[in-house]
Write a protein that binds this DNA or RNA. Structure first.
Lengths: 220, 220
DNA sequence: AAGGCTTAAATTGTCGACATTGTTGGCGAG
DNA sequence: CTCGCCAACAATGTCGACAATTTAAGCCTT
């Protein structure tokens, strides 16, 4: 499912990607202290490449660093989740707004087709497909904004954190049918070239998503 | 004027800050190729610290890197400026919205006091004060949002780029009186605890600012 | 026994050298 | 004369070792 067209060529890249996945998937639990030496041994590389990987992880907001002390994986807190979704609401709302004017007709058609596939998946209750379909939907709108800053901030910065919360809080993929309706409304607004409505609907969609995760968080 | 409470203790930090300033101020022109060896010699440090500084500069979107090729300072383009201001509009709009509910009464009072000082500066046509006052105004609202992601994205990521455009396109500081009115309206909305209005006004304020810079850009 | 100081261990920060990759110039074939 | 291959060069990527700082333990004092 993953949209990394950029192949990681250098050793640092591979270590970075591997570490990021380990953190996001929870193989390295939240709030874990990261020892450069230990990681270097585990990945069979030098400490320099681990350092570079850690630096890049830090700019993804997946780890926190203190000078002369070390790095540790971020802690997942309810407050942090809310803050994350506030930023996401802001950025993805703008992405939807821009997508309404910047996406080509071809891209919009593909988005509508994706919505159709998504609908089939929902009918058959394929939960794995729901998750992938949701990510793909948001991904296309973000890219459709044609704004490099937005794309970079969301795909490199926010989405891995969002996924980390989802995975580690055990979000399977409920809220599918309602989410599908919201998706359809957003696509309609975009194909009508209505930026204001697209932004409003996307922001509400993310607000609902946040509240859904919050309620899950409160249960556990 | 600068608000870096975080003192740079390590050698990488100092190199990073120095390099960032050199790039933002234009001492190192846009689109310049950055040689690790040369910079290491110029700053009197090892290549490793220059590498780390360059990595951090990259996550600020001030330089671009290609594997096995090298790094170069970003190019300033009209399209890039527009994209940057679109993101800024989105994020600072959300910051104003959050500030309207999250800022303490004390912080709001200080913001109003700052507005008064700013007014005096405008009366006396102190252009240096106008620039500093504008930055300080936006800074307080961003911090007032109490959202760590927002604060980090804007202060570490966006603002240095904005400043780079301002400095290198020779923006002295016009648009002061109108901007002052806009600032006052925003403060009023925040002190009235009106999130929606605060966001709308901030977004319009940044849209105006963008158009102003765009017209300057078209002249040259 | 509790607290603070000193010292030792471990971790991070920095350095110089080596390996690998990309680039540039020249040479030769067509 | 142009195109393509090859080699030397320069730049980035990686590594192991040393230096500086933080942390922990141990000892001494009170």
């Amino acid at each position: 499912m993953w949209f990394d067209a950029e192949q990681s060529v250098t050793s640092s890249d591979k270590t970075f990607v591997a570490l990021r996945q380990a953190i996001v998937e929870g193989d390295i639990p939240a709030a874990t202290k990261l020892s450069e030496a230990e990681l270097a041994g585990r990945f069979g590389v030098s400490r320099a490449v681990v350092r570079e990987a850690i630096n890049r992880l830090e700019s993804c907001n997946l780890i926190e660093r203190k000078a002369n002390v070390g790095a540790r994986v971020v802690s997942l807190t309810p407050a942090g989740l809310i803050e994350l979704y506030q930023v996401r609401e802001s950025l993805e709302g703008m992405a939807a707004r821009l997508a309404a004017t910047e996406m080509s007709q071809t891209e919009i058609s593909e988005l509508q087709a994706l919505l159709g596939e998504h609908y089939d998946g929902v009918q058959q209750r394929q939960s794995y497909y729901q998750e992938a379909g949701d990510v793909d939907f948001h991904y296309r709108i973000i890219v459709g904004s044609k704004n490099q800053h937005l794309i970079s901030l969301l795909l490199n910065g926010i989405y891995h954190l969002v996924r980390m919360y989802r995975v580690q809080l055990g979000m399977a993929g409920p809220r599918v049918t309602t989410a599908f309706d919201e998706h359809r409304q957003i696509v309609t607004a975009i194909s009508n070239r209505d930026p204001e409505l697209a932004e409003i609907l996307m922001r509400r969609h993310i607000q609902y998503s946040r509240r859904n995760i919050e309620s899950k968080l409160a249960q556990s």
